[in-house]
Design a protein around this nucleic acid. Sequence first.
DNA 1: TCCATTTAGGAAATCGTTTTCCTCTTTTTT
DNA 2: AAAAAAGAGGAAAACGATTTCCTAAATGGA
Lengths: 342, 342
Amino acid sequence: MPATINDVAREAGVSPSTVSKVLNNWSTISEATAEKVHAAIRKLNYTPNARAVSFARQSTQNIVFLTALTRNEAYKNPHMFDIMCGVHNELAKENYTLTLVDTSKESYPGETAEKVISQKYADGIVVHGSAINESVGDLLVKQQFPHIVIGHPNFTNQLCWIDTNHTLAGEFAAEHMLSCGYTNAAFVGGKKTDLISLHRERGFIGLMNKYGYKIPESHIVHTNSSVSESTSAVLALLSEKNPPRAIVCENSLIALGAAKAIEKTGLRVPEEIAFVTFDTYPYSGIIEPRPTIIDISMYDMGIQAGLMMLHKLKNPSLQIQSYTTLPVLVQGESTCLPEKGK
Amino acid sequence: MPATINDVAREAGVSPSTVSKVLNNWSTISEATAEKVHAAIRKLNYTPNARAVSFARQSTQNIVFLTALTRNEAYKNPHMFDIMCGVHNELAKENYTLTLVDTSKESYPGETAEKVISQKYADGIVVHGSAINESVGDLLVKQQFPHIVIGHPNFTNQLCWIDTNHTLAGEFAAEHMLSCGYTNAAFVGGKKTDLISLHRERGFIGLMNKYGYKIPESHIVHTNSSVSESTSAVLALLSEKNPPRAIVCENSLIALGAAKAIEKTGLRVPEEIAFVTFDTYPYSGIIEPRPTIIDISMYDMGIQAGLMMLHKLKNPSLQIQSYTTLPVLVQGESTCLPEKGK
DNA sequence: TCCATTTAGGAAATCGTTTTCCTCTTTTTT
DNA sequence: AAAAAAGAGGAAAACGATTTCCTAAATGGA
């Protein structure tokens, strides 16, 4: 049987409460006593029983990562684990653990969240966008349960969330293009129903317009998500009478297709044609030449979520607070270096 | 304040122990009493406090997924999360939760595992291959802590593990090739130091030899992991005086390069040149034409690990037991359909 | 020197279940 | 009809910390 706090107390010749105070380093314990206790702890190889601590403190040092899993998640959503790792790494610094919980098999919306909250095996919840809905949101608000939602929920303003700004990312793309002197740039987006694509498009076009550069309609194209489709879309673009000098690819799959198309035309990158894309995952890493990327780090978003959670746990009375992460430009070889002063 | 078991007992007019027995459906409680208790539970909206249950039962219904995380894990190891999801989904069926724990920042080997075991916040550990080493192994064996190691550890035979058989996967590839009549097949492997690649190569060559087909040395090539390198490697293969009729690509990145090379030569797939690859992730999904894959599902491996863990928890006295998963052939368009009866 | 204050550490309640005995009732057996 | 067995439920002791008082000793001020 492993040693308990009572064994340590006996060994050190003090009371259990003193041992507890040493463990949680209260200031009312003298150096000498503390040392005796520590010696006993070492001798008996004592570790506090986390189950008992949880019970006594009425808190588990555990956070739930609530998400809707589908089979082969890593493939369908390579970002999810990245976020989770970020959250984990941040929480681990303060000795919190992170538990993966899936909502995809619940029998009514909110069932899982309800269980997590009522069973009290977690001190907080990080809700991935795939798992948030009104039921869950209401629950979190009503129960005042510490939470961070990954992704801005559009059905209430009572929740604490963290999100990225895809419109801003689109603006970054435009700025980079302009700073390189590519005023004649095209945009190849994903499906028209894809909100992320839409925001990036909006940001890009908006900023180009703001600086006085109109983008002809033929230079804004949409393609479904396959390499061959984006390849032919880009091929079509490049064979226009007035082809663009640069291309903004809305995602890495499109960029992969674009790179293929460009290779076919024999144009030199970036001297004759340049391109940028968004996100490092899943395909930017294998594109040749190495693309310039407007990166939206999911890992960093996880880190931020972890930080916010820790902050909340320390200051329970805190007002709701939300956060938007900034995209980062990673210069590659698919665009030239921006000129000084834009 | 949420209701406790005592509140329920009072409401139902029975003792707390009776409520507990109803909750854990012991057979010594009459129908009538049970119904009274259930009514009280519904009325008070009672949920057992998981922290208290853990404490009383001396078990947490929680399993740790121990792994060595590096930044951008999803990118560097898309398989890890897939395994984790499999484990999670299986454990969830029996109401176990799964907690992610990282070993990458420990100050000495085994520190994290030691903590997990001594603090008793988990009933078992699933150790990902990235986190297993002798210290951890010794600890698990010495403490007799319920565990499953993902990947066959080569330093002891005392551990319980689950693994895939890459050699067998290589044999599957060879069998498929032969059943399609491609007796003249080449193998494009990864770095020579890559064990997985080596096993696949060994399996493939072994089976080909067994059926009497020698593979010329020039048809066994190794390439570093980049699309362009594998493209040129395959291009070289195909421009030989005696080019192979089919190619086994050791991973999906190589297959991507191979597909590109093949496209360049203009050869028709699979009529003039065929190829197979291993693993669905990360790139097989975007290869055109859709490749025939010898798939080694990490998700399924996770499922198996979960099952083994549950089994162990139910039968603590059980002998050590290990398991090897089988690869699955997924027919694509990069090889023709195998002939009946091989 | 005496009273007030501070300091160090202990006693005991508490957290919410589970589980082991018991004690009554019933029922069954002879 | 008496003894034995079975059934139903309760009392109370765990489980292993934390935390709130409380007390005794040490210190300080007058």
